[in-house]
Structure formats: structure tokens, C-alpha cells
Design a protein around this nucleic acid. Structure first.
Length: 649
RNA sequence: GCCCACAUAGCUCAGGCGGUAGAGCACUCCCUUGGUAAGGGAGAGGUCACUGGUUCGAAUCCAGUUGUGGGCACCA
């Protein structure tokens, strides 16, 4: 005779055990229609499951996060059922939910084609229309293994075997399809609805390990209703419009070509942006007590052997052999170089902490499949720095880095930053006691900042634990940029020492840190974050002064001179083209300010201002306009309208 | 590196069941002096990614290579 306590505190009493569906119906028709599961004492259960005891219960609907996740999980099952019907020899493996959707991995010799995808999606819709009941069963594990082996599902049998003893083996049956699954699931396939779509096929390794066979993965997206699906597809289109590779072309910032895979050809405007980032970072680092150095791009192999890089990353290093038969490596990191600067001459403890920064261009032979525009390249520039300090100084220095990095991200419009703490990886150098100390020091540093962080086990660098700074862009994507690493290994390996208060030599602690991380990558992220409409202070061309007809050319040139005198990057456009055409062209290339200088402006010493993404015009005295823009640059203000709305193309 | 797809003018893309290619934009010239997202006309521009193979003939078919895209794996 269950008494069920609902979320609003009311208690309903039933004479007999009751299912989730019946409970939902007893509350309301609409709720029953949108119900996908039941939350019983904080645990999700099938709607079909019976409640027999007194519990707290809450009907989970399709539009709330847990319900949507369940919907996606069911979509994966319907996908698998469709594939089994259409391609009977295929083995099913796993089909989890992911952000915005789901996937299912299949083992099959023939890969799926885009045409197959259409057929499969059609069959999925048929399965939903059939509204097959989905039923949960608890099986004996040996029987389950035998069953899955018997029907040729080797992978499923392997999964069952890997489930820990004592855990129940549950399977769900829908139509002729039986899948191992923890659940919960919808009561029937019809409840999935129609708001799903298969999006792509891809290869993926069994259990995520590249030494295992490759499976065929089918990705899909699923939503509570068609409106949400459409909104998601629109967001994808928006992301495509923001793609930095496309905007890079439109804005004439950079290009890639076959002869230099993974290496950027920066065009003048792109290089202006790049240099702007460096100028900014240099100023911030100078103010924070860093000294800038520069070290060789090519150094002898022996140095990389000593540092441990050769052993760990040899196949990812560019090497070169010279006529004298010496083998050199193009630097994949700046730290060994920085250590040579530290080592040159004896350092006293009074000189610590010593913060050496370097805008170092590094080369890494990344796997071809990893390359991705500016975001993953083989040649890139780090805003690197190495802080040499005593063990006692670690915490204060780490705090300083955390504060600096967050302040810098704010200037670029990234307020949403989260921190990951990554500890010792399997493949590493140095004794465990040293790792214990390094991890403890870094952890206490991040704790002392009071910032939130999550732990990323086993993801540290081979020489030390690290913090990763992940920032979220305007459309919700996460990017790992900054990093801070505590290294108690490399200084010793490379013979670094300072003279302590006791007159003896000590090995310094080395902190590695990069704030942008890669300048190339950060530039790409910025372009996407702002959809190309960069804040005025960063825009490569800040203002174009356009004439209407040729009678005001001189005034336009005067405007440019005045803008330049105020430190702005400005150009005159006195071409024999219509003003409409000029406005369009400069808008497409995302120039933030278009100033029109015509006859009337020339007569009155004014200029008409038009901001990117708006149609509003404002005529101001030239002095006032220049002063306002200079002020905006100095304040590092975000673009009007936050620059996050896509300007019409 | 692995799976799948793709590669035609500077860009976006048509076309081509085997007979050496088109459009729009951009570019050059001419006309046009026009007030806020494309004024008009003409012209020039391509070994159809590369290398082999099949064929009388390959941009088209086949194989390989390179690059790119979407994933997976990797990311000091």
C-alpha cells in the first residue's frame, strides 16, 4: 500500500502497487504524456516499474535534463534496432548519450555510407511508428554471455563479462531487438517522438584504444520536440558561420597550403592581430615581473636526450642532420632553452623567483589526423615562461599566475573559465616522492586561490603535474588554453642550481606556464568567439574612411592622418566605387568602424560614423570621433552588441 | 596514424555515363561622381590536386600519393 510523496510535498496513497505511468496519469494527462521516467528516492527508474513501498517520487518529463538524456539513450537503442534489421550481420557494441545527442558503435566489415544513414533514419522512424513496448528483464550473467555469443554478439558478451560480479545483468527487449543495458528506458519506442536526426558516420576504436579494431560509429542528435531540434540545427549553422577558417579567408587573415601542412601563412591583417596579442601579453608580463629571453630554434639532439623529450617524443620531433653529421632537433618546447639561460652564470637565492618569458615558436610533428585550422597546428608560437623559484615560493608564484591569467582572459571577453588539475601520467620521469611533492604544492596553490577546479587524473605532463585553464566561448564551446606546471624533474636533469642562504647549491623548482597557450590557437578562438567582429582594440583594421565621390578625397586622407596620429589603424577608401559597395565590402571583412567623409563632412570638418553590424549613422566633429575611438581602444571595450550577433553577410 | 568523404578559376560552386570545361563574386579596362550591405559594360583568368595504369583518346574509369573536412586515437 504505497504512500508516495510528490515533489510539492503532497502524499498520495494507493491501495495496490502502482507503475510510474499510472502515477503520472493520476496527477495529470499532460504530465503523463510528457513522462519518460520516474525518479524514485533520487534514482531514475522505468515508468513501467512498480512502486510497492513508501517513497518520494517525481515524474521526469522529456524536456528536463535527465529526461532528455534518457530520450537520447532510447534513440541510440532505436538506432541499433534499425541497423540490426537492415544489416543483420552487424554486431552492436555500445551506444551512449553525448552532449546534444547520442551515438552507437557497430562492428561491421563494410563501412556505412551516407546513403545508409538515410535508410537507417527512415527505419528508425518506422520503429517509432510501430510503438514497440520496451521491456526490462534481469538475466543470469552466464546465460547472458551464452545468449550474446549464441547470436554472434561477441562484443556484448565481452561487456557482460566485464560487468562486476554482484551487479545485476539487465537487458531491454524492444521488438526482436535485445540489448544489454542498465536503463532506464522509455516504456515504448513511440515515446521517442520524431525530433531526432542522424548526423554522421565515423570510425572509432573499440574501448577507445587505437590498438583495438576500429568500429563504425553513427552519430545522431535528439531533442524533446521538433522545435528544439530545429534550434539545435540552427546553432550548428551559426557555428559554421563563425568557423575561423572561413572568417580567416573572408577577413584575409591567413591561409594554409599543401607544402606546409599544419603551418600558417599569416597575411598582413592576420599578422597585425597576432602582433597585437604579443604586444598585449608582453606589456602584462613586464608589469608582472617577467624578463623576456629568446633561445635557439635548433639545438643538438643531446640536449633533448638530457631533458627526456627525445625518449618520450622523438617521433613527434622535426630533426635535421647537418654536413658535419650532427643531429639537431627543431625545438618542440622552450623549456630546455630557458634552462640554459638560467644555468649561464651562478644564481643566488636572492635572485629568485626568476621569471623568464619567451615568445617561442615550436614545431611538433602532430599526427596528420589531428590538424585543424589554427586550433591544432604543427608550428606554433607559445607565450611561454619559466619561473625558477624555491620550494617555499611555489604557492605564491602559482597564485600569481592564476590571477594574471584570469585577468587577461577577462580582457578578451572570456569570463567563464574553469580549471582542471592533472596529476601524474603513467609515462613519466622522476621518482614518486618528487611527484608527491609537486602535486601537493600545485594543489595547495590552486586551493589557496579559492578557485573552483576539477581533477583530470593521469593527464599531467611527463615531468610534472599541471593546471589547465579551459575557457568557454560565446556559443558554449570549451577550449583549453593556458597551462601551469610544477616541475621538480627537468631542472635536475639539466643541471640547474642556485646558491642558497646556506652557501650550498640547490636545485630550483621550475614552473612552466603559458597563458594564451598557442598564439595561433588563441587567435582562432578569438575569431570564433567574436564571429570575426573583434573588439576595436584588437581589430587589424580599426577604421576605414570611405568617400562618396571624389570631391572629398583630401578630407578622407586628413581623417586617416588624424586617426593614425591618435594611434589607430585606419585606411582611406577613395576608390571610384559607390558608397553602398564600400560599406558592404568593409562590413564583410569585419572592419569595426566605417567613417564616411563626403562633401558635407569636408565642409564642416566632421565625419559620419557607422559601426559594424548596425545601420545607425552619427555625424560627429572629426576631433570628437577620433577621441571617442581612441578612448574605446584604450578601454579595451567589447564590440557594441558584444559582437556576438552575426552581422548580415 | 586509423575510418569515411571530398579535391574543377583567387573565393563559392555547376558540369562531365571517356572526345581537353562553365556561372556568380573577386581581378583588369571602359562608362558612371553615385550618401550607407553589390551601378553598368567588356576582358583576362583553369595541365579539372599530384603520379601511375586502362584506352585511339582520361578532368571523367582504376590504383597509389598528397592535402582538406567530419570522427577516433594523440596533444610535452
Amino acid at each position: 500500500m504505497p504512500n508516495i510523496t510528490l515533489p510539492d510535498g503532497t502524499v498520495r496513497r494507493f491501495d495496490n502497487p502502482i507503475s510510474g505511468i499510472e502515477l503520472a496519469e493520476s496527477i495529470g494527462r499532460r504530465l503523463a504524456r510528457d513522462a519518460v521516467a520516474l525518479r524514485v528516492d533520487d534514482e531514475l527508474r522505468d515508468l513501467a516499474a512498480l512502486i510497492e513501498t513508501d517513497v518520494r517520487a517525481c515524474v521526469v518529463t522529456r524536456s528536463e535534463p535527465d529526461g532528455l538524456d534518457l530520450l537520447r539513450h532510447d534513440a541510440a537503442h532505436v538506432l541499433a534496432e534499425a541497423v540490426k534489421e537492415l544489416y543483420p550481420g552487424t554486431q552492436v557494441t555500445i551506444g551512449p548519450t553525448i552532449e546534444n545527442g547520442f551515438y552507437y558503435d557497430f562492428a561491421r566489415d563494410e563501412p556505412f555510407t551516407p546513403d545508409d544513414l538515410e535508410r537507417i533514419e527512415e527505419r528508425m522512424r518506422a520503429i517509432v511508428a510501430r510503438d514497440e513496448p520496451v521491456e526490462r528483464e534481469v538475466w543470469d550473467r552466464a546465460e547472458a554471455v551464452e545468449f550474446f555469443r549464441g547470436i554472434g554478439e561477441e562484443y556484448k558478451a565481452e561487456i557482460v563479462e566485464s560487468i562486476s560480479e554482484g551487479e545485476a545483468i539487465t537487458v531491454y527487449r524492444q521488438g526482436a531487438f535485445i540489448d544489454l543495458c542498465r536503463g532506464p528506458h522509455l516504456p515504448s519506442t513511440g515515446r521517442l517522438g520524431t525530433a531526432f536526426k542522424l548526423t554522421s558516420v565515423a570510425g572509432a576504436y573499440w574501448r577507445g584504444d587505437s590498438s583495438n579494431p576500429m568500429l563504425q560509429r553513427i552519430y545522431g542528435t535528439a531533442w524533446a520536440d521538433p522545435k528544439a531540434l530545429r534550434a539545435h540545427l540552427r546553432r550548428l549553422e551559426e557555428a559554421e558561420r563563425r568557423d575561423h577558417r572561413r572568417l580567416g579567408r573572408q577577413m584575409d587573415l591567413f591561409h594554409f597550403q599543401e607544402e606546409a601542412p599544419g603551418a600558417v601563412f599569416w597575411h598582413p591583417d592576420g599578422w597585425t592581430l597576432f602582433q597585437g596579442l604579443i604586444d598585449y601579453m608582453r606589456a602584462r608580463q613586464d608589469a608582472a615581473g617577467y624578463r623576456e629571453v629568446n633561445t635557439p630554434d635548433i639545438m643538438d639532439r643531446s640536449l633533448w636526450e638530457a631533458s627526456g623529450h627525445w625518449e618520450t617524443f622523438a617521433e613527434h620531433m622535426y630533426t635535421t642532420e647537418t654536413q658535419d653529421e650532427r643531429v639537431f632537433a627543431l625545438k618542440p618546447m622552450n623549456c630546455p632553452g630557458s634552462l640554459q639561460v638560467f644555468n649561464h652564470g651562478i644564481t643566488s637565492y636572492k635572485d629568485l623567483p626568476l621569471r623568464l618569458s619567451e615568445f617561442g615558436k615550436v614545431h611538433r610533428f602532430e599526427p596528420s589526423g589531428a590538424l585543424h585550422g589554427l586550433l591544432r597546428v604543427r608550428a606554433f608560437t607559445q607565450d611561454d615562461a619559466h619561473i625558477f623559484c624555491t620550494p617555499e615560493q611555489i604557492t605564491a608564484e602559482c597564485r600569481g599566475v592564476c590571477e594574471l591569467i584570469l585577468s587577461i582572459y577577462r580582457d578578451f571577453g572570456f569570463a567563464d573559465v574553469h580549471i582542471k588539475f592533472a596529476d601524474r601520467p603513467e609515462r613519466r620521469v622522476g621518482a614518486d616522492e618528487i611527484w608527491d611533492r609537486a602535486e601537493a604544492a600545485l594543489l595547495s596553490a590552486v586551493e589557496s586561490t579559492g578557485l573552483e577546479y576539477t581533477v583530470n587524473p593521469g593527464e599531467g605532463a611527463f615531468y610534472g603535474p599541471k593546471l589547465e585553464f579551459v575557457l568557454r566561448d560565446a556559443i558554449g564551446r570549451d577550449w583549453q588554453c593556458g597551462t601551469l606546471q610544477v616541475d621538480l624533474n627537468l631542472p635536475e636533469r639539466l643541471g640547474a642550481a642556485y646558491v642558497g642562504e646556506d652557501g650550498r647549491k640547490h636545485v630550483p623548482v621550475m614552473l612552466h606556464r603559458a597563458l594564451f597557450g598557442s598564439l595561433e590557437r588563441f587567435a582562432g578562438i578569438l575569431i570564433e568567439h567574436y564571429a570575426g567582429s573583434l573588439p576595436l582594440w584588437l581589430a587589424p583594421v580599426q577604421a576605414v574612411v570611405a568617400t562618396v565621390v571624389s570631391d572629398a578625397d583630401e578630407h578622407a586622407r586628413e581623417c586617416v592622418r588624424r586617426l593614425e596620429a591618435a594611434g589607430l589603424r585606419a585606411r582611406a577608401d577613395v576608390r571610384n566605387e559607390t558608397i553602398s559597395y564600400k560599406v558592404r565590402q568593409h562590413s564583410v571583412s569585419k572592419v569595426p568602424v566605417i567613417l564616411v567623409a563626403g562633401r558635407s563632412e569636408a565642409d564642416e570638418g566632421t565625419v559620419t560614423v557607422r559601426r559594424l553590424g548596425t545601420r545607425r549613422q552619427e555625424t560627429l566633429a572629426l576631433d570628437a570621433a577620433v577621441a571617442a575611438l581612441a578612448q574605446e581602444v584604450a578601454s579595451k571595450a567589447p564590440p557594441p552588441g558584444a559582437g556576438l550577433k552575426e552581422a548580415a553577410d
